[in-house]
Nucleic acid binder design. Structure first.
Length: 494
RNA sequence: CGGGGCGUAGCGCAGCCUGGUAGCGCAACUGCUUUGGGAGCAGUGGGCCGGGGGUUCAAAUCCUCUCGCCCCGACCA
């Protein structure tokens, strides 16, 4: 085949998403979110509407993570959205970190304005402004101070699922929105060692969530001082490499030492009879994780849902014609759905009036892990046809319903394993170890496949390297645990 | 908040330079034929051309202000 013919053939391959990842990764991302019907922009700048399919994914994430959190002995609770301004001011570094992105509530009543419409009533100004929580360390610390009297009250392990608000300059669906959903855990301990161990343990909970449910293979490590959470002693992070080679901070866990205990007054009478400040941790994972999932697993035909958190694991597509067979096909599909549901599979039937190919592409764009097609012939034979999203049409297989019901779980596991392996192999293939600043610079200037440079931590003292980093938006992502703090990843980030 | 780009039908775009009553593709709706990897024919509906103010007999088009979106930075999960 000539080059011209090859080009012509390539042009004929129609991808469901335009542009492709290679053509324009950021726009590809936006298109996938839209095509999969996950979320859209709202009338409120920087805030998003999460549509049912996107929220369904968040519910699966919540379920998986909530189970893991509770397995660690943490209890769920709920603290207020509004935080007194004075609380936020309590921890000095915390103030510096969050002050510039806080939304503030100053009034409690509206009235008719001079030009019609409603305005905040000047007579209804709050004595103390209230801050919409950017995070809840201070208000939870306030409660903890009341609840902790004795070392016997420790550890105190709390989590809340909620929304928070940070007034961001630049927002992107899921990856950064001014309001987002997350869980924030807040634990208090008697000793520094316990808090340190807890911060590390909760990070490992996130790591396992990503590997076991998201089919992602992120890096774990400690943040350098400049990337640390405001007010933390140590910040640990899940860094995941996206398909464009950029890093996404996918969850964090902080050892807050006694900083917040001191500013919030979390103190207790110890075994020695003396008064001590508690040692606290906080740890969070947000709807941003959904953006990471999309940029890790998506392809040019849309999303690929990891089976264990896919809101719909199996989509049944009845292939009906305009004849009397349609009712039988739908009934057959419903019977299969019931059998799958009985063994714990999240299954849905596409009963829309779309034509078969359109239903198929809709399922592909949404990343449904397994598609099942049933038509008239198969009703007769007691069979079905199934296709894996990750492998595409080549994986199309015909079998009996009984065979499928018996093997569907292992097929979903196979999909998970394949997706995990792809994510793992990709991210590891894009780590380049550099021993000098010159090597690192050479790497970033010549690579066509962006990734992380792994350099000795000692190089962070190199002024030239830091200038280069700053000029090129290269940040320290983490000091991976696997190198025991001797090395640091440097790369671009979301 | 800086630099760049863009706002015209649900989505994607043309028209703007050189003012003259709004167009294309897809989607939607109706009918018939179709239906296992993106169907065909025929017909129909849908737009304060992002918003305000100007210039003009006349503005999607020119001027001005504003709002929003996207990208690259700064800031951050």
């Amino acid at each position: 085949m000539s080059n011209a013919q090859q080009a012509a053939k390539a042009a004929q391959v129609r991808t469901a998403i335009t542009p492709t990842r290679e053509d324009n990764f950021p726009e590809w991302y936006q298109s996938v979110v839209k095509a999969a019907d996950m979320a859209e922009n709202s009338p409120v700048r920087g805030a998003m509407v999460i549509k049912p399919y996107g929220y369904g994914l968040w519910e699966q994430i919540q379920r998986a993570l909530d189970d893991k959190i509770k397995d660690e002995g943490v209890q769920n609770a709920y603290f207020p959205l509004l935080i007194p301004l004075s609380f936020i001011s309590r921890e000095a570094e915390h103030v510096d970190g969050f002050a510039k992105e806080c939304a503030v509530v100053t009034h409690h009543r509206l009235e008719k304005g001079p030009e019609g419409g409603l305005v905040p009533s000047p007579d209804a100004q709050l004595e103390e402004p209230l801050v919409i929580r950017p995070t809840s360390e201070t208000i939870i610390g306030d409660s903890m101070a009341k609840w902790v009297q004795s070392y016997r009250d420790l550890p105190l392990l709390l989590n809340q699922w909620c929304n928070v608000m940070r007034w961001e300059m630049r927002t992107r669906l899921f990856l950064r929105t001014s309001e987002f959903l997350w869980q924030e855990g807040h634990n208090a301990f008697e000793t520094a060692e316990q808090a340190e161990a807890d911060a590390r343990k909760m990070l490992d909970v996130y790591r396992s969530l990503y590997t076991d449910f998201f089919a992602m293979s992120p890096f774990t490590g400690e943040k350098t001082a400049d990337e640390r959470f405001p007010g933390a002693v140590h910040t640990y992070t899940i860094e995941s490499m996206m398909q464009d080679g950029k890093s996404l901070q996918a969850a964090t866990s902080h050892n807050l030492g006694q900083n917040f205990a001191k500013s919030c007054g979390i103190k207790f009478q110890g075994r020695d009879g003396n008064e001590h400040f508690a040692h606290t941790t906080s740890w969070g994972l947000s709807t941003r994780s959904i953006g990471g999932l999309i940029m890790t697993h998506g392809d040019d035909d849309g999303l690929k849902m990891p089976p264990r958190i896919a809101p719909i694991q199996v989509m049944i597509l009845p292939i009906t014609k305009n004849d009397d067979g349609a009712a039988a096909v739908i009934e057959y599909a419903q019977k299969i759905a019931a059998e799958l549901k009985a063994i714990g599979i999240r299954v849905s039937i596409d009963l829309s009036e779309q034509r078969a190919p359109d239903k198929m592409w809709s399922a592909i764009k949404k990343g449904i892990p397994l598609r099942v097609e049933v038509g008239g012939r198969e009703v007769e034979e007691g069979k079905l046809t199934h296709t894996r999203r990750d492998l595409g049409r080549d994986s199309k297989t015909s079998c009996t319903v009984a065979e499928f019901v018996g093997s569907v779980k292992s097929i979903l596991d196979d999909i998970h394993d394949a997706m995990f392996k792809a994510s793992h192999d990709f991210s590891r293939s894009r780590i380049v170890e550099c021993q000098t600043a010159a090597q690192m610079q050479e790497y970033f200037e010549t690579t066509k496949e962006l990734g992380f440079a792994k350099v000795p931590v000692s190089l962070l003292a190199d002024d030239a390297l830091n200038t280069y980093r700053k000029e090129n938006a290269l940040t320290t992502r983490c000091m991976p645990f696997e190198d025991e703090g001797r090395m640091v990843f440097i790369g671009k980030a979301y």
